[in-house]
Design a protein around this nucleic acid. Structure first.
Length: 801
DNA sequence: GAGACGAGGTTTTTT
DNA sequence: ACCTCGTCTC
């Protein structure tokens, strides 16, 4: 993939070929900070990579002066691959990766200054949670009062705010207790030589902040810093960028004149959908202000969708306030109208989608070019069932990723213990797996011993007497033998050895249901194999500085184009010389930072099912968005405040702009959710779309008896609905809640949108209605008391005219 | 140490 | 309704 590109032509005409004026301006921006507002489908990635290629090719920067940051490994990989097609240059020397990958790289290079062991391991979210649980158990902290999940969230938030335990203000006993746990957790991690994801960011930020020589070195080195998806950065990531670019607080205060690099931030405020996990769209405005950005470019030419789709997106998003402002345009014609489909039940909605998918496929569309999107994962089930019954191949995104599977985590735990015996999380995971007669009681003793002598579980083993001690001893001895035997072996051989001698493979082979797990373990060997070949670790090869990317970063010297490594400062080496990471350590890092695919096996031409969130960045010929109902999309948990609603609207914007040719928005009068049938009005977003771009369709009422897919309806094909029957908005079906088909109508007489009076809460408005008879409940928004769910058989409500 | 049973929780997700 | 997790029992 990176071998010399024979099509390469030395002058940069082909590089800039076919760029529109805005793209060209962005690619050839002069030195200085800049913000690019890149709309959906506007060629953002192309601009970013062409920019880098242009900078290199025109000699404005050497590879060593480039720092490019993305959020996902996928995006980083794509950037590297695309660069490879543009330039004959290898990418060594350039720092291209995710925030966390780059932080890892910084910390590995300066582990001593960062106060970490050279073998430090990375805790993923699961590991972190179990580490917290273990700690809370050990210190007898009530997990009813302080749920581990909540504590994890608290710690993560503190780190994102850049706060160490001593800096967190605890105004109430609850918070003070959490801070205490936070401090204990930090101690534990430090003792065990592990860092969580938040720690990677924070520790590398502090490294830059506290060590002038390090910071200044990188500030001098990185002449061009490019950040993708800038709207998704959190507070700490923004601060990290400031540090690297010479805008750190210290530099400003001290007035040092480090010639900071140019920061190019690329993002789209309209596609900011991760506020719930700490992303701050406000960073875009802050960036413009704090960096004195004078160059702003909007990429509004869309190369993806027809104008009916784009008009819908534009009009919807115009209902948001505080936008930086942007309108997508296209040269393609209007295209097909956006089809809006109403169904009586979720089952009918699913059936309608299936029928339409069949029609599209019959018309020649590839199944993998068709996506069904939904707001929440719970919605996928009905659609899966319908697709399954119709024998249409499909892929569901989401769920456990490869390196997160239990058997893989077990294997990795053994491998991690070879590298770092003090990793107690890994120790506990496998000390009795496969079972070797070590029970909870023995473990308790071991943990107490370790705590009182302040050492790791591994080191405490020798102090345990009796039979338990012997069992522990055997386990530790096994690890020691494995560690000994693994010396000089290739990564593949090490993994084979561990799978075999740990008993993992035998354990799952003996299990009747363990077939998949055995397969996965074998897949782990393959993953290691391909990791090694991509990284260029040969058995005798010199270990190279680790890089988190699963792309070839090493080439034979002959194929290296430009000067690969350009330490910008004399006498300062990025990687501590002599300190290299073993293939095993590199692989473990890779496993932690890149959890692998979270999708079903690729290859088969299958319809794509995923949440709107995971569809970000993707595009399809045809897109179905199901469950367009109030309470679902926008989600009821987001309705209480304006910001929440605006994020839902951006989410909808993302959903719409995924479609190239055809877009279907569908809603159902009733839906089974959490075991109850709910009747929600159609989404308010329909009122925000341009009527002229829409075509309203009513899916055929397929009867309320059988819900299974019959051969008859296959024959009926896409004719299972009546097209063109646009209904009148004035007498839309939701003037009153639809009557549940086989059941009696709600007897309470309430309707969504109705004003009601409650003796305690006062006046309120009905948000949602669900259930029937004695189970009937209403969600009511009381301006004074917030949103409440009330059982109608109990609550005394009087309608207010 | 494995299977049964009950409780709790169900917006979105990457590293 | 359904799935995951933890605990209890045999």
């Amino acid at each position: 993939m990176f071998s010399a590109n024979t099509n390469f032509v030395a002058d940069n005409a082909p590089l800039l070929h076919n760029l529109n004026p805005e793209q060209l301006a962005a690619v050839t921006l002069p030195t200085g900070h800049a913000l690019i507002l890149a709309g959906a489908g506007s060629g953002k990635t192309r601009v970013l990579t062409t920019r880098i290629a242009w900078l290199l090719q025109t000699g404005r920067v050497t590879p060593g002066g480039i720092l490019a940051v993305t959020f996902t490994n996928k995006a980083a990989k794509e950037m590297v691959v695309r660069l490879g097609t543009m330039l004959p240059v290898n990418v060594r020397g350039m720092w291209i990766g995710t925030f966390h990958g780059l932080c890892n790289r910084l910390l590995r290079a300066h582990y001593k200054l960062a106060n970490l062991p050279s073998t430090f391991q990375i805790l993923d979210t699961q590991d972190q949670l179990s580490a917290i649980k273990r700690l809370m158990k050990q210190f007898n902290i009530d997990d009813q009062q302080y749920p581990a999940k909540q504590t994890q969230w608290f710690i993560g938030n503190c780190k994102e705010e850049g706060l160490r335990p001593d800096a967190v203000e605890g105004h109430d006993p609850q918070t003070r207790k959490k801070v205490e746990i936070y401090a204990l957790y930090e101690e534990q991690c430090q003792r065990e030589g592990v860092v969580d994801f938040g720690e990677l960011m924070l520790r590398s930020y502090e490294l830059l902040r506290d060590h002038d020589s390090v910071r200044e070195h990188y500030q001098r080195r990185f002449r061009h810093i490019l950040i993708d998806e800038f709207q998704d950065t959190n507070k700490l990531q923004y601060a990290w960028i400031k540090m690297l670019s010479g805008y750190g607080a210290k530099d400003l205060a001290a007035g040092t004149s480090i010639p900071g690099g140019s920061v190019l931030a690329v993002g789209d405020d309209d596609q900011s959908i991760y506020a719930f996990r700490g992303a701050r769209v406000g960073n875009m405005a802050d960036f413009v202000r704090e960096f004195g950005v004078t160059q702003q470019i909007k990429l509004e030419q869309n190369y993806r969708s027809f104008s009916n789709i784009l008009d819908s997106a534009n009009q919807l998003i115009s209902h948001n306030s505080n936008r930086l402002g942007k309108d997508l345009r296209t040269d393609q014609g209007p295209g097909e109208p956006v089809r809006v489909v109403e169904s009586p039940r979720d089952l009918d909605e699913a059936q309608w989608i299936v029928d339409e998918v069949k029609q599209l496929v019959r018309d020649g569309m590839a199944r993998q070019e068709i996506a069904v999107l939904y707001r929440s994962n719970a919605q996928s089930r009905v659609i899966e069932t319908a697709l399954f019954n119709a024998a249409i191949p499909y892929r569901v995104y989401g769920g456990l990723r490869f390196f997160e599977r239990a058997e893989i985590k077990h294997a990795l735990a053994y491998l991690r213990l070879l590298e770092n015996p003090n990793d107690d999380t890994s120790f506990l995971r496998v000390v009795n797996f496969p079972p070797r007669g070590i029970g909870a009681r023995s473990l308790e003793i071991l943990q107490d011993t370790a705590r009182s002598s302040g050492c790791s579980l591994h080191d405490a083993v020798s102090a345990i007497p009796g039979k338990a001690g012997a069992n522990f001893g055997a386990f530790v001895a096994k690890l020691d033998v494995l560690r000994e035997q693994s010396q000089g072996l290739s990564l593949r051989e090490i993994i084979d050895l561990v799978l075999d001698h740990s008993g993992l493979l035998a354990h799952f082979k003996a299990d009747r249901e363990g077939e998949d797990r055995v397969e996965n373990l074998e897949e782990l060997v393959n993953a290691a194999e391909s990791f090694v070949s991509q990284q260029g670790f040969g058995r005798d090869a010199v270990a190279l500085p680790v890089d988190e990317l699963g792309v070839p970063l090493t080439q034979s010297p002959a194929s290296q184009g430009l000067d690969p490594n350009t330490p910008a400062t004399e006498g300062f080496i990025d990687q501590d010389s002599g300190e290299t990471l073993s293939p095993l350590a590199a692989f473990l890092t890779h496993a932690a930072l890149e959890a692998g695919d979270n999708q079903a096996k690729a290859g088969q031409d299958a319809v794509q099912l995923m949440t709107v969130h995971s569809a970000k960045g993707l595009e399809f010929d045809a897109v179905f968005v199901g469950g367009m109902e109030e309470g679902l999309f926008p989600h009821e948990n987001s309705l209480s405040d304006r910001q929440g609603l605006e994020e839902e609207r951006r989410l909808m914007y993302v959903a719409i702009t995924r479609a190239r040719q055809r877009l279907y928005l569908s809603f159902s009068q009733s839906r089974l959710l959490h075991g109850q049938t709910r009747y929600n009005p159609r989404s308010r977003f329909f009122e925000e779309l341009p009527e002229s771009a829409l075509k309203w369709i009513t899916s055929k009422t397929s009867g309320y008896g059988s819900s299974s897919f019959t051969p008859k309806s296959i024959a009926a094909g896409a004719g299972g609905y009546s097209a063109g029957g646009r209904f009148n908005k004035e007498d839309a079906p939701f003037a009153s809640p639809p009557v549940p088909p086989q059941k009696e109508a709600p007897s309470h007489g309430l309707r969504v949108g109705m004003k009601v009076f409650h003796t305690k809460f006062g006046e309120g408005k009905v948000n949602l209605l669900e259930g029937k008879g004695d189970d009937a409940r209403a969600q009511i928004n009381f301006p004074r008391h917030g949103v409440k769910w009330l059982a109608l058989s109990v609550a005394k409500l009087t309608p207010v005219p």
